[in-house]
Write a protein that binds this DNA or RNA. Sequence first.
DNA 1: ACAAAAGTGTTTTAGATACACCCATGC
DNA 2: GCATGGGTGTATCTAAAACACTTTTGT
Lengths: 240, 240
Amino acid sequence: MKDNFLNYNNYVSVDCVVLGYNEVENKLQVLLIKQKGPAPNTAELFKPQYAIPGDLIKEDESLDEAAARILEDLVNVKGLFLEQFYTFGHPDRVKDPKDADWLSTRRKDPLARVITVAYLALVRIDQINPSAGYFAEQIAWRSIKKIPKLAFDHNTIVAKALDIIQAHPEQHLVGRELLPNKFTLSQLQNLYEVIQNKELDKRNFRKSIKNNEYLITLNEKQKGVLHKPAQYYAFKKLKK
Amino acid sequence: MKDNFLNYNNYVSVDCVVLGYNEVENKLQVLLIKQKGPAPNTAELFKPQYAIPGDLIKEDESLDEAAARILEDLVNVKGLFLEQFYTFGHPDRVKDPKDADWLSTRRKDPLARVITVAYLALVRIDQINPSAGYFAEQIAWRSIKKIPKLAFDHNTIVAKALDIIQAHPEQHLVGRELLPNKFTLSQLQNLYEVIQNKELDKRNFRKSIKNNEYLITLNEKQKGVLHKPAQYYAFKKLKK
DNA sequence: ACAAAAGTGTTTTAGATACACCCATGC
DNA sequence: GCATGGGTGTATCTAAAACACTTTTGT
């Protein structure tokens, strides 16, 4: 039982898989940061890697608050869909030699394990303004189909996030975050197709979503398009 | 960024919601422990509470290994269904005065936050042999419908575990853990009814499970029962 | 022969799938 | 008038739900 008096030296972090939807190209992308060197303009001493944004938790904040803080610092947007999905804590997850360099500049004990609680965030790429700065030298959006090698076990974390969003049955929750306030049924269908990674039949799609009824028909149509203008829709407010 | 050199003092624990199925009474129960006093036979100085089994993680073990260790120490069974489901880390989750007493005997810093990674385990009550000992003064099974007030935020943790098992669509995974190697369709139906907390129609139930096909028909029947003997079935092996 | 649980089919309903043409607009 | 994406209906199949009686055994 004495053991309990020791086991105290755990770093705990929150990492965010930020998925952004690019409506124009109809792609899902992940927000990556390029790790910062130990001090400004010393980046050349370093081999910076791409990583997902994350940070150690602060003493007085909950995990949800930490995730919101990281997201806010990075993308300058509040109140988005944000959900904890898994915790990664293998003792070796920060022991890869490729990561030693970065850790040595950031940790009192660079060899100590880091347990990380992973969150999934959904954002509209066109609506946010990610800023390199506190967290990163640079930020970059990368298609979920072409994710580079990432720091630590971040590839595993991203893969798990993608599994989860694809398994998620209540996709209108996802739609709420990734579409503008008013949108056409084609926009909605495109989004669902990207998430599910398959094509959907237009008529069947419209039938099924009109049954499930989380949509309201606005009384506004597209203007200035060179084809039949589409009806705009919006999501019903969620009760509770 | 200096903050990172501080945030080191986190206790990390793993807590296990052990759900046991009692086939005879057809009930789902949760395994609870009664907290141990600071030393043998000093329990009377204490107000021991019920809690779910958990422990701080050790330096060299993964979260999954910690969960398996806790479960093994407690119920003397290996290799059961065991799944991480959520991490609880609110700064106040161990700050309730009711818990101060226990913490003061177990922690170098009794006020430090404890982040706990929660696991769900499924066991057949008749197959295991939980032992009071290392973890607990006593152990107790309690029906999921009558769970007492527990230490820390353990009521919240148990509630979340129950949500998850009920939402879980692949219930045959659950069945594998909670039924004997050979079983009748009525046994399977009883289990599903308890988990879903509703009655199922016998004919429809049999139709649906025979479609989904994860069962094999054994060539053995019940013996010595005072009614028509039932056919035995088994689960197909899962391929990886 | 009776008590007890096992076992079995049909009908109805709702949702999923497959599939092809006309419509409104800008240029 | 033509190019562009928007919008619509029907037929078929599959899955879910509702519902009642006969069978096999032990005593």
